[in-house]
Nucleic acid binder design. Sequence first.
DNA 1: CCGAGTGTTCGATGGAAACCATACACTCCC
DNA 2: GGGAGTGTATGGTTTCCATCGAACACTCGG
Lengths: 107, 107
Amino acid sequence: MATTGHRAAPEHTHPDDVPVLTALAALADPVRLALVRELAGSAEWSRSCGSFDVPVGKAALSHHFSVLRGAGLVEQRDEGPKRVNRLRRAEFDARFPGLLDLVLRGD
Amino acid sequence: MATTGHRAAPEHTHPDDVPVLTALAALADPVRLALVRELAGSAEWSRSCGSFDVPVGKAALSHHFSVLRGAGLVEQRDEGPKRVNRLRRAEFDARFPGLLDLVLRGD
DNA sequence: CCGAGTGTTCGATGGAAACCATACACTCCC
DNA sequence: GGGAGTGTATGGTTTCCATCGAACACTCGG
């Protein structure tokens, strides 16, 4: 039978709908900053949530990705049992020109 | 007699010595964001700390300015009984190109 | 159908940060 | 010198957020 059982699609916020303060707050955290940077260095849709090298448990990690989605920084898609990620470079850069470059251009 | 009594000069941090995360955290607060924006719309050294339109008391205000100094965003100088402020536009922009523009270019 | 793997949700906890009220330090003007 | 104006420091309260452990939902491969 047609399985109605699909996982709840993650809620996304387009960068255009994101206030500056939200974007700044999302990036002003060491873990999320690491996530964004690592994501930027990988091919799109190539990284599942659990594949990142950050010193927090699953629960916290899930929360951080939720924040990144809400800031229009990350897009997610379900692929089998995993949730794979993509950095919304172009869209986010259009809304906040230079911000992403700034963050990715290490210290 | 020669008055040794001078007020402690405020400690400043040059933008070049500021980590990205510190800069972002400094700007990711509604009160400080308002301070920076209001300061950007005023002539340099024209605004004393108390002259800003933010809904917090003196103590909190003083703290916020301390954070802004530590992020290399604001320079202060004592002028009589008041402490006047200046936005370090050029220096901060050299260290974090575009970030200040982004924040000042309202929503 | 069960078990392993993956991610979300919930409740609780700890620590950081914002805030206030008070007290203090300094500068100026009368 | 006294008093008004301005800012800082201190102590205590509250609010927020990052984190964890555990329970739950879903997918896939035996």
